[in-house]
Amino acid sequence: MENKKKMIFNVLFLFLVFGATLYGVFHGEDLSEIAEILKTVNLYWLLPGVVCVIIFIWGESIIIFYMMHTLGIHLKKWKCFLFSSVGFFFSCITPSATGGQPAQIYYMKKEKIPIPVSTLVLMIVTITYKMVLVVIGLGLMIFGRGFIRTHMYDIRHIFYLGTGLNVFCVASMLLLVFHPVLARSILVKGMELLEKMHLMRHKSTRIEKLNASMDQYHTTAVYLKDHMMVLVNVFAITLFQRFALFTATWFVYKAFGLSGTNAFVIILLQSVISVSVDMLPLPGGMGISEKLFSMIFEPVFGSALLIPGMILSRGLGYYTELLISAIFTIVANFTIGRNLRKKA
C-alpha cells in the first residue's frame, strides 16, 4: 500500500513538474512559428542523436554484464539491457533519480540474483556515474576558467553548487565503502542529534537497517580492493556512455544546418547542464535543465532557434530516453523471471 502511494505521488509530481516546465518554456512564445521552424529540421541528423540515447542506455547494461561476469554470474546481454532500461525509466520519473536502483534490484531478484550482489554492482555503477560528473566539474573549475567566463558565466553559481553536491555525494559513498566504521559512527551520531532536536522519531529498527547497510558497504570495499582494474574499466565505459548522451545536442545543432561552434564546446556545455542539475530533487532535472539551456545556448543556436533547439535537445536527452526505457521496462515486466516462473 505504501509503495502504491509513493508511486502515485511520484507520477503526480512528474506531471506537475512537466506542466510547469511546459508553461515556463512556451509562455509568451509563438507556437505556430516554432512548429514551422521544427518542420525545417534535417531529420537525418537526428537519427544519430537517437543512437546516442540508445548507446547511453546500452552502456550501463554492458557495465552490469561485465561486473556480474566478474562475480561469477553469467547473464545474457539482452537481460542486462532490460535491467538498465528499468533503472533509467524509474530514475526519469522519480525526484533525484531515487527510484532507479530499487527497481533494478527488484527485477534482478526475480532472476534469482542475490540482493547483496545486485546492490554491490549498482553501488559501483552509481559511484562511477557520479564520478564522471565530478571529473567534469572539477576539471572545468581548475583548468577551464576561461571557458566558464566565456560560455557559462551567468550560471556559474548553479554549476558550482551542482559540482559541490556531486563531490559531496561521491566522497560520502567512498567514505562509506572504504571507512565503514567511521561512516557508521558519523551516521549514528547524526541520527542521535536529529532525535534530540525532535526532527526524527527514535526507532530501534533504524539501527538494524544501518548495520545491514554497513555490511553491504563492507562487501563493496572488499570487492574494490581486489578488483581495482574493474573500477577503472567501469569508469572508462561510463565516461563514454555519458558523453554519448551529451553528443546528442551537437546532432541537434547540425540538424538546423548551423555551423560556427565546434562540437567540443556544445558537448561540454551540455555536460555542464548535467553536472548542475544531477543532484537537484527534480525528475530528470525538468524545469531547471530547460532554464539553463536557454541561458547558455542562446549564443550557439541564436534567439530564433533557441526554443526549437531546446525542444529537440531535451526531446532526445530526456524524453526519448524516457520513452525507450519505458518500452523496455514493459518488456522486462513480461520477460524477466519468466523461465523461473515456468519451472515453478
Rank of each mutant, 00 (worst) to 15 (best):
L245Y: 07
L193V: 13
H151V: 01
M68S: 12
I55N: 01
N42Y: 03
G137E: 03
G99L: 09
V53C: 10
T329Q: 00
I267M: 07
E290N: 10
K203M: 09
Y153I: 09
M67S: 05
C52W: 02
F15E: 07
F15T: 13
F143M: 08
K39D: 07
V41N: 06
M229K: 15
S259R: 10
R338W: 12
I155K: 06
L282A: 12
K343R: 13
D30V: 02
Y23I: 12
V135L: 11
L239C: 03
V50S: 01
T220I: 11
N3C: 05
I37G: 01
Y44E: 12
L82K: 02
Q104S: 06
L210N: 04
I288D: 00
F159A: 04
A244G: 13
T40G: 14
A35Q: 10
T335K: 07
F147A: 01
D30P: 08
P95N: 07
C92A: 14
L22I: 15
I186R: 06
S213H: 07
F15D: 04
I186A: 09
L193P: 00
F143Q: 04
M197F: 14
K6E: 10
F13G: 07
L12I: 11
I267N: 02
K110G: 07
F143P: 02
T40K: 15
F251L: 05
L258I: 11
F256E: 01
I148T: 06
S96G: 03
W45C: 08
P308Q: 06
P180V: 03
A97Q: 12
W45Q: 11
I127W: 02
F297S: 02
K342H: 05
G28L: 14
L187K: 09
H202M: 06
R341V: 14
F334G: 02
G190M: 12
D278G: 05
T329K: 04
G257N: 08
S172H: 06
I136L: 13
G137A: 02
P180L: 01
N262G: 04
